[in-house]
Nucleic acid binder design. Sequence first.
DNA 1: AAGTGGTCTAGACCACTCT
DNA 2: GAGTGGTCTAGACCACTTC
Lengths: 257, 257
Amino acid sequence: MPTVTSDKKTTGDAATSTRAPRRRAALAAQTNWQSVHDEVLRRIHTRQWKPGDLIPKEVELAEQLGCARATVNRALRELATEGFLDRRRKAGTRVASHPVRRAKLDIPVIRLEIEGRGQKYAYGLLYSERRTPPPEICTNLAVTPDSDMLHITSLHLADGKPYMFEERWVSVAATPAIAEADLSKISANEWLVLHAPYTKGDISFSAVLASETEAKILRTHKDAPLFLMERTTWNGDHGITSARLLFAPGYRMHSAI
Amino acid sequence: MPTVTSDKKTTGDAATSTRAPRRRAALAAQTNWQSVHDEVLRRIHTRQWKPGDLIPKEVELAEQLGCARATVNRALRELATEGFLDRRRKAGTRVASHPVRRAKLDIPVIRLEIEGRGQKYAYGLLYSERRTPPPEICTNLAVTPDSDMLHITSLHLADGKPYMFEERWVSVAATPAIAEADLSKISANEWLVLHAPYTKGDISFSAVLASETEAKILRTHKDAPLFLMERTTWNGDHGITSARLLFAPGYRMHSAI
DNA sequence: AAGTGGTCTAGACCACTCT
DNA sequence: GAGTGGTCTAGACCACTTC
């Protein structure tokens, strides 16, 4: 016990001689966390384990599949965040009984979205004013009616055609630097993404009819169906910005599940 | 060395006496992977590390923050999947230069979405027929025009009011059991979620105008703006189902960022 | 009180990729 | 070829939850 200090404990002890062979002598397909992930998913899909079922605990699975508990843990953790499993200490791991399809939605900077399709991006600042916010913005961002804010409307174009119309309120108090930004060159959205950190946000999607003004700006007709994205972001308790993004008719937002 | 076989090596050896104190004697705030995550995020947000910057390698960070490399790895891995970092072997870890806002979108079973708001859910099968698919479905699901398919339309209601109108095609070849399902009791969507595994899927959102028929079913007026969700799912190379979900006016899909 | 997942560690090896 | 992230392992302890 004395001389076995701390380092090099893997050199000549029994643990090593059993561990190394086990790993290498294993079946052709190695047991990595992804194979555990897939195997568990297979058992769920084939209904060997049904929604609500309790599945074996980590130690047992590790034994069954011939790997370390940490590996199983990694696989099951991913499956839980993907929504396939519910895990609770002591209670164990169950197959999720209310399957939720969890999609990752990438919300790109609009310029990149357009350029990514090989189209030419252009941006125009329509209007910019420093003023106090209307009541609904006060509510949205929890700011006082006499706050110093920036009100901006702008248009984003793809291949010269109107693509998205943006109306945005930015709290100057929360983001002083924006007062100096040249928002005719870089869109407020992009500026904010690069310079204004936020800790939480909220996004919603809906369908609305184009107003007369909106129709004119987006070069469509009144009452055209528009895809509306509303975003609000916060940094701690400070409301940063609230935006209303109206996409031209025909816009589709995609995602893989 | 002899008697110290393998178990209980923590009982009386030097390693323990140095390790245990280190962890517990550390600053009040312990260094777990989440604190590393937050610290790195803070450095990004405060622009100490700017978009495109190379950040210290895992070993260095581990040293700086006083934890194991695995812990740093865990934190950085999460940050990468959250879209804040770009990691490449040998090249190192960089702050993402094209920040992508990645939202997790939970797409619940519609019944649960309605019940979760405390409303009463009801469902009605409008139409069900076994027939060959129209061309656009053949394209969508990559099935032949003479495939055996199920065509279903149904209506989902919240508190008795039309909530969502669903039109769906299901490949009977890929999902034979659905021919036996009683789709007047359980919605096709819910049945499929419970019984038909899929490996990949696709979802898209857009805004459309209500047709005369759709308006009548959803009890609204023609040309009302409707939120449209289109979903296609696959199991390997087999197209399973393709659905068109039309939500009643006023529907909003929410998500946190 | 006991059982289960959650996490940390130190060490090792692997795999990718950049030069 | 060499450097960096990616992962695995065995062991340990912690935290939460149910009993």
